[in-house]
Design a protein around this nucleic acid. Structure first.
Lengths: 237, 237
DNA sequence: TAGTGGTCTAGACCACCCT
DNA sequence: GGGTGGTCTAGACCACTAA
């Protein structure tokens, strides 16, 4: 449990925390590569690696000839994010945990291939239900490797948010996503949960979130009752 | 027009082409960092940068202590991809160009903020209609900075695919995406195009695709008649 | 144990941005 | 012109993987 952290990780955490605390507000400039070199007594390679990481994680933009600039980081990634979702429909989102995080099998019918490293690790699964004004709108299923999140099962979520928990306790940041979407007929268990008629069409969205941990992803499946999407009309615009 | 390419870009293009040609099939190993050093007469820093890029673009997986392995690259990114989309509904997709690529204003009602570099560049816009078995299913709108794609307006699409054109002519690869989704009432022009009743609810998906060009994105808006999604039932599974 | 990738040092030259 | 980031060299040590 005493794995030595690389220097660039230390600096990365420092800067990330500073940004999240608001010490570097959106639009402001981060220290230059050379300033970081002097401050942390490292070479430019290391300082640079740090800033490249921060960019990959979406915290800053980088421009040739200018310092790095803190950027507005979109909290809504894919559909998953509670915050973006609740803003859309007016803070009336309720989240119910259907299955608490627990060890499970990897889902092999998933349209993404689990990496070798993940295959070696055991898998954690949890399932939630999102409701809007008493309408059951979405079932959310999540799979991920337990090896990147030690003691995950013992820890409560940070502000009820999965992604915030990953960021806060494990410095895991989402840096991108791929997804496939399609319509399927809901099976019986889904119909019961969403309180819809058997055979109703539901939207099935499979997402693979890339993280700043190479080779590790968050796999999510969203099963949405599209009938209720029109409720929140004009999500944006 | 004779901007000198960095060495790592040259090597990157070589490897990417080799992978796409099938010289390194999925699951096979790429040359190690040191082998690339010797072959191209560069230092490890440069060879490494190349392989890191290839990973970021989704072509390979990297493991400590082992060579890089070519990975199955998902062609369907978000909803946009014709190939993924047409596979889903049985090769019956027809694509009609509604508005050919042309200079336009940046769309400021878009939920993503255009970067400074993009703001400086002029914007190219085009619009297409996707039909499945004579059902008008989706309007696709695209915005991107003209400065990253010189002569784009003079060039025909590669295999009718926007992304293939970007990859082939400009070495631009999609490395991730963010999107927001919501339901809105279709306005009159949309209703006419999709041949639906005025006021019908449609799905509005806004996507920002990240590319391997830092600071440059592809912005897309999809307006989908969700009534026709159930057609292709069991997209996967 | 040999080879691999992960991290890091200490330099260098250049193109770009701002004033 | 002075500072910034983009690229690159030529080394080094370590941790991990596979035989």
């Amino acid at each position: 449990m005493k794995t030595k952290q690389p220097k660039y990780r230390q600096i990365l955490n420092d800067l990330r925390v500073s940004i999240q605390k608001g010490e570097y507000p959106v639009g402001s400039e981060l220290p230059s590569e050379n300033e970081l070199c002097r401050h942390y007594s490292v070479t430019r390679t290391t300082a640079r690696k740090t800033l490249e990481e921060l960019r990959a994680e979406g915290f800053i933009e980088r421009y040739h000839g200018r310092k790095s600039v803190v950027r507005e980081r979109r909290d809504s990634l894919g559909l998953l994010n509670v915050k973006g979702f609740s803003e859309a429909v007016g803070q009336n989102v309720k989240t119910t945990v259907l299955k608490k995080p627990a060890y499970a099998e990897w889902n092999h019918s998933f349209p993404f291939q689990v990496t070798e490293q993940e295959q070696k690790s055991s898998c954690i699964y949890f399932e939630r239900l999102r409701s809007v004004r008493n309408h059951k709108v979405m079932i959310e299923r999540n799979w991920f490797a337990s090896s990147i999140v030690p003691d995950f099962l013992e820890r409560p979520f940070v502000e009820n948010s999965f992604f915030k928990t990953l960021s806060y306790h494990y410095q895991i940041e989402i840096i991108g996503s791929e997804q496939e979407i399609g319509a399927v007929n809901a099976d019986q268990s889904v119909c019961t949960l969403l309180k819809i008629e058997e055979g109703s069409p539901v939207l099935l969205i499979s997402i693979r979130f890339s993280t700043n941990q190479p080779g590790f992803f968050i796999y999510s499946e969203l099963i949405c009752n599209t009938k209720y999407f029109p409720i929140g009309n004009s999500y944006f615009i």
